[in-house]
Design a binder for these strands. Sequence first.
DNA 1: TCATTAAATGAATGTTTGTTCATTCATACT
DNA 2: AGTATGAATGAACAAACATTCATTTAATGA
Lengths: 218, 218
Amino acid sequence: MPTSQTPTTIEQPEKKRRQVRPRSERRQQLIDATIRCIAAHGLSATTMQLVTREAGLSLGIANLHFRSKENLLTETLRHVTREYNEGLLGILANDSPPSLAATLEQLLDFQLSRGVTQRQKMAVWFAYYGEAGARPVYQTICSASDRLAARKTEALFEAIISDGQYRDRDARQLATGYLALIDGLWLSLLVAPRDLNKARAKAVARAYLQQAFPKHIA
Amino acid sequence: MPTSQTPTTIEQPEKKRRQVRPRSERRQQLIDATIRCIAAHGLSATTMQLVTREAGLSLGIANLHFRSKENLLTETLRHVTREYNEGLLGILANDSPPSLAATLEQLLDFQLSRGVTQRQKMAVWFAYYGEAGARPVYQTICSASDRLAARKTEALFEAIISDGQYRDRDARQLATGYLALIDGLWLSLLVAPRDLNKARAKAVARAYLQQAFPKHIA
DNA sequence: TCATTAAATGAATGTTTGTTCATTCATACT
DNA sequence: AGTATGAATGAACAAACATTCATTTAATGA
């Protein structure tokens, strides 16, 4: 049941009309394709051919909108990082927070829910972490993001400690531990999805928070 | 003040006498060089040239003793993993353990001490984790190792819970959390060594264990 | 001392890679 | 309708790559 759209031409295989689109849109398109490629093939197997084909565009376009491959990869990391930070700040830098307990719950939900999308992001995240030891640019971007998350989490924990009048609790240490735990759980979800699912990961993280702040989480 | 060692030849630049060595020794030499290269340049920038030069050997030798680059990389991951597992089993599969409390302390020491060497190993570890999503071989090796660590840690925690008659403690959940915490701390040590040192990381991990098993750790 | 064996070498090979740029053509303005 | 602009294309290119293999040479035994 062929649905010929142009009966005049004899089966020209996918003529693919050329489109002109604004720079920002093309950049986003290429970054999205890069994320999918890294998740599917790994960072070291991500080539310009693969990325541009995945984006449905021509080979030369990535060098037109980003100067080089290195730049495209850096911008991709920056994008994923910024996205995560914005989500985090939406919860932790809220000017009118509902309550400390609710904020804690939101944080947990944010870090350990989200469907398949987040799974792709995790793959990207750790691909760059793996190279961070060797590439100062990656290290700078990653550690700047980590530091922000650490500061904000620490501030939240300090407020909770003060509010609950908890004794013998160090906000900085608890924040370091909590964020490390979340990273570790993400890693397990990525590498051994058979042994750990999101529900159990969330239960583990919640248990940590319950030990720390029993009055603020159910 | 030139210290000519061979005055008979006119400054032959490093003649480098060829040596014949057993296969196992060459393999180890190449694996060690691979580890150093990955730590210094990252997995994607680790070439055969770099590895063989780092080992002080010729270009073709890696393909002689390992069949291919892919095989060399796989064997390197296997080596690092095996080394870690042996250290872990030395503590957790000890037939005559000193005491549960001492075993816990040993575990903590093992996972968060060790000088520069371990730092190189961490870089390797995470470089492979980053690619694990795309390469089934890496995923298999990593998750098999993780599963072993999980089983042994869980068994230890079960014994401790029983011994201390702790209530409302789930050994599996605590083990998952503890190992994720250790992974996360390693990651922080690797990516943001300025924000976290080994002493603080150890304090964080110890705090987790203290919350879980207060009678078994100081 | 010489012959034999196989480990070690590195120049050569074919493939893959990021990047360039002359050409094409969609779009907007006159 | 005609023209100017620059986004998009992909063939072509040089550099880098893993791998091969003819040659060299250390080690061994006769």
